[in-house]
Write a protein that binds this DNA or RNA. Structure first.
Lengths: 190, 190
DNA sequence: CTTTTAACTGAATAATTATTCATTTAATTT
DNA sequence: AAATTAAATGAATAATTATTCAGTTAAAAG
């Protein structure tokens, strides 16, 4: 028997992300995805039951892989600010390096394809971040505000940094990154 | 002759915004829009040439009306911080009160319906804000950073405040608003 | 090297959705 | 109050897009 070319799944994912970035979730068809991935439309259906399954699987892959990079190199033993900085930087860099993915996740959040459960799974992935913020409050290093706002503040500004970096085609130097981190830090610090 | 019911256009707009919030731009059909607006599908085509025209017209209306509220009560003669606070509050409140609209604009930004020119028009609407930021830098009240980042910081965090307010069904009290403003202000201040 | 089996193809079909149009309704004019 | 005209309707049609499937190809097993 002929085995599946498992790499093909990645090609399909890549194609979908590229097309969604360019045309939105509303602007893609299975034919476009197949063509962009360099395969026949029928082949798509060997790997995915239907369009909804493709979108859901990709959403799952995107959230898992991005969440895992968010906390790479993060050591909870380190001082609070070091940990916060590590995660902040990880998220910014992931959002910029995988901008397609960021837009895809954003669009999926308001789409009929993704169910509440998957959305909640995504929210859960920020768990370690929530704990870090609680710790920062306990250590009196950051403002004593409801965590939801501290997180919104951090994530919101990061999202917008990524968008502008890509839209205006800016090269993110260490200097720019540090200056942006400073904005966030000065905001949350006690 | 029978005159057009000009209010119908607003019904169509409202219906579209509600449906896009619930299902995304990819999840709406002209039949759904008509039904939600309480009219026949054919009637939609009396008011809009086609789907693309509807989306474009709505995008235009949304950007214009939201931009105008952003700068209401804003008096450039007032001290910098007052002006900044006014605009900050205007944007947050608009985003929350017209959450549909915010999601629609966000989704349109990555869709084949909206052309580059319309996107640029939207960017231009923040012009008064850019000027205010320049002024803040001149007066040495805020950090001397490229305006693109200061604006990203402000807008990004506002967007996320609005999303969480709606998703978690939070009542935005003056206290919460002020605490969130403080986060932003502490971030940008010199 | 033949057989087997599953991947792969892309045109054909099914399903969905945009758009039209013959007909009906209701405001205005005369 | 009859005539006129454009709005409104919604089923019918056109266009698009998802999905299938009969036929083809290529890897693995024997």
């Amino acid at each position: 028997m002929k085995p599946r070319d498992e790499n093909k799944i990645n090609e399909i994912y890549k194609a979908t992300l590229n097309l969604v970035k360019a045309n939105g979730l509303s602007g893609i068809t299975m034919q476009m995805v197949a063509k962009e991935a360099g395969i026949a439309t029928g082949t798509l259906y060997i790997y995915f039951k239907n369009k909804e399954a493709l979108i859901n699987a990709l959403f799952d892959v995107c959230t898992r892989s991005s969440a895992s990079t968010f906390f790479s190199n993060y050591d909870p033993e380190q001082p609070f600010k070091i940990g916060f900085h590590t995660i902040w930087l990880n998220i910014v860099q992931r959002r910029v390096a995988h901008f397609n993915e960021s837009i895809f996740i954003e669009q999926c959040f308001h789409s009929p394809f993704i169910d509440e459960e998957s959305k909640n799974r995504l929210r859960k992935m920020f768990e370690p971040m929530l704990q870090l913020i609680e710790r920062g409050k306990t250590e009196r290093l950051i403002k004593n505000m409801d965590t939801v706002w501290l997180l919104a503040f951090m994530i919101g500004s990061i999202n917008e940094i990524a968008k502008r970096t890509i839209y205006y085609n800016i090269k993110l130097t260490d200097e720019i990154l540090e200056a942006n981190f400073q904005l966030c830090w000065d905001g949350i610090k006690a």
